[in-house]
């Protein structure tokens, strides 16, 4: 409390008023700016960052939005997000796989051009890039899943047989053909998007998604018993008795019925 004997100077009052007004205004404006800055971190799923890009939460403090990576890109894959286009934070580099995928240059010129390290110079082998992960999003329309031999996504993949392989299975529809299922292996997929670009369907059945959408994560506590067993070279639980498995058909270890266990009666619809 001011002492009554000493009147406060009007200049001091003026100063305090001005300061309070400024501080209040700055808190309001700053909150709005913080909202916009946080909001800008929402990257559209179709917008992929260039190779070597830092994780999105670090990228926006690192990228100065100069466009030197865009200039360095020999295939005009990279673009700068335009204001109001909402693909990515305004002015930051991105590409859309279905329009122009990343051609995975060996010398990675976009990373070399980045002045700030928003594209990490630690990326020296383009096969280690993780721009996203291809996911076969629609098995119902994928021609290979229908039993045809389209194979285009598999054929164009720059990391063929490692990032995408064809896994054979029985074609139950025809009964005597195989299904060559294009299968992405996330640990090798760079997310270049060549497969998405090449998909022959009007809307691609295989799409590159950011890892946060493409991947689940295994539960921490979950152990795969067969891996544990192999690592140990013996059953994980000691002293367990391996009881015989009773399986139908000949050649099993069914001791009671050498030559095979035959069920006493046949279930309707069961068997070949």
């Amino acid at each position: 409390m001011p002492s009554p004997s000493k009147p406060l100077s009007p200049r001091r009052r003026r100063f305090l008023q001005d300061t309070a007004r400024m501080a209040g205004g700055c808190v309001a404006a700053g909150s709005l700016l913080a909202y916009l800055a946080r909001d800008a971190r929402a990257l559209q799923a179709e917008a992929l960052r260039p190779p070597g890009a830092l994780p999105e939460e670090n990228f926006l403090s690192a990228c100065v939005r100069c466009g030197l990576c865009v200039r360095a890109c020999p295939y005009d894959t990279l673009k700068l997000a335009e204001l109001g286009m909402a693909a990515a934070a305004t002015g930051t580099p991105y590409f859309t796989a279905r329009e122009t995928p990343c051609e995975m240059c060996d010398d990675i010129p976009c990373v070399a051009a980045c002045p700030t390290g928003a594209l990490d110079k630690g990326l020296t082998n383009i096969d280690d890039a993780r721009m996203g992960i291809a996911v076969l999003v629609d098995q119902e329309n994928c021609l290979n899943f229908l039993g045809l031999r389209c194979d285009v996504c598999y054929r164009v993949c720059p990391v063929i047989d490692e990032a995408i392989s064809l896994e054979l299975s029985h074609n139950a529809r025809s009964g005597h053909h195989a299904i060559f299922a294009p299968t992405v292996h996330a640990d090798r997929c760079t997310g270049c998007g060549v497969c998405e670009k090449a998909c022959v369907l009007p809307e691609a059945a295989i799409k590159v998604l950011p890892a946060r959408l493409a991947r689940s994560s295994a539960a921490e506590h979950y152990r795969k018993g067969w891996e544990e067993k192999e690592a140990k070279g013996a059953p994980v639980v000691e002293g367990i008795i391996d009881l015989p498995d009773r399986l139908p058909g000949p050649g099993t270890d069914n001791l009671a019925a050498p030559g095979g266990f035959e069920p006493a009666f046949k279930l309707p619809g069961a068997g070949q």
Binding site: C26, G30, L33, A34, L36, A37, A40, L60, S61, A89
Partner: peptide, 19 residues
């Protein structure tokens, strides 16, 4: 405004004014 921009940059981990 300059001080606010720097504080917001620090709090949000972005280059705030470039928004």
């Amino acid at each position: 405004v300059l001080a606010t921009v720097l504080i917001v940059s620090a709090l949000t981990g972005t280059i705030a004014w470039e928004v």
